[in-house]
Computed example of a mutant assay.
Amino acid sequence: MKMKAIGFKQSLPITEADSFIAFDTEKPTPEGYELLVKIEAISVNPVDFKVRHNAAKDTILDTPKIIGWDASGTVEAVGDKTSKFKVGDQVYYAGDITKAGCNAEYQVIDERIVGKKPESLTHAQAAAMPLTTLTAYESLFDRIKVNAETDNGKSVLILAGAGGVGSIAIQLAKKLTNLTVIATASREDSAQWCKDLGADFVVNHHHLKSELETIGHPEVHYILDFVDLEGYWELATDIVKPQGHIVSITGSSKPLDLNLLKNKSVSLSYEYMYTRSMYTTEDMERQHDILNKIAELLDAGTLKSTLTTTLKGFTVANLKDAHRLQESGKSIGKTVIEF
């Protein structure tokens, strides 16, 4: 049986006609721990356009590459080793970057990185959450290992607070810890968004050092870099407190001077949401547990979906629009395509 998918054969600018193409392909069959999910909504993240830019830069692929790593849908079939879900269950997940993505009508996905969809959310609202939530949650609780009691009164600086990851990181830090939450934003609308999500302070990243001093936090215990580690490196190492911790999801195109961390005994961690699925780590199932916990928090109203833009219809035009918005660097919250 065939299904519709949207992919690309070449890494082209989003303005090019063939930057995305619709095509028919075989509907996959679940094996082992896999679920076959009928997709109802997907969201687009910066990783999507970065993969699109680089996956077929100097070649033309024989078959289109399907990307996309945020989805919500309904289980249609299960593999012979599954135990967590059954046919008819509604689920949400971020997926595995080493396999075909969710820009298709159906997808097979390992149940160990899938969560139960929040009952109170629409598929569109749910699809906005997995990748960014897992990234933010792992940054706080798996990398820094924030403890609500022992870290009481400490501070966290979230770089790019209004972005997809920052938007949920603000909520997690405010609702699940006793940290003072400081977010960066430069526009009036993005600053207000951060405040509405619970940030204690919002500072302009163009004047970061002086504005931190103004609010009485010239140094911070923890820094979450969700935008540009290389660009912020010297400033981050200057404003982080001794024995502090920096977590980055962005990496660097050139070597960083780690000596800047030495005298302060500062820790640096990278956070890559795909690590557990890419390497089938022993604790891979933790993402299933995190997503289920987040679903409970969303249903309880403790957290709220970061969905801001919904595009109706699984079409090439809508996928291009979503990528165009992500590439602009000015999106607030999350953009979702509803099938």
Rank of each mutant, 00 (worst) to 15 (best):
P218Y: 04
L179V: 06
K50H: 11
Y137A: 05
A5H: 09
F314K: 14
V37K: 15
G68M: 01
N204Q: 07
D238Y: 07
A136D: 05
W193K: 14
E230I: 12
A300D: 06
K241F: 00
K330V: 06
S269R: 15
N103F: 08
A17W: 09
K195F: 03
D225I: 07
M3T: 10
A295D: 03
L157E: 02
L303G: 04
Y92S: 06
V316A: 05
F339N: 09
E34C: 10
A295L: 01
I337N: 13
F85N: 14
E40A: 10
T177A: 11
K154N: 01
G101Q: 09
G164F: 07
G231R: 13
N204W: 00
E296W: 07
L325F: 01
V156C: 06
K312G: 05
H206W: 03
E119I: 11
Y279H: 15
K330H: 08
A199C: 01
Q287D: 06
N54H: 12
G198A: 03
M1Q: 14
S248F: 08
R286E: 02
K334G: 00
E76G: 10
T82L: 03
I168D: 05
T177N: 06
G301W: 07
H206F: 00
E119Q: 14
L212I: 05
L319E: 10
A17K: 15
K38Y: 04
I290M: 03
R143S: 06
R324F: 04
A5P: 14
H123A: 00
A71G: 09
E16W: 07
V87E: 01
E338P: 14
K304P: 06
L291W: 07
E149H: 10
I39S: 02
A162V: 02
S277H: 09
G329P: 15
D200K: 15
E230V: 13
A55F: 04
V240N: 11
P255F: 07
A71D: 01
G161K: 12
K117H: 13
R276F: 04
G73E: 04
L172P: 12
F20E: 07
H245K: 15
L208T: 09
A322V: 15
K175P: 11
E271D: 03
K174A: 05
S265Y: 05
Y33G: 11
E219M: 11
K84H: 05
G79H: 09
D238P: 13
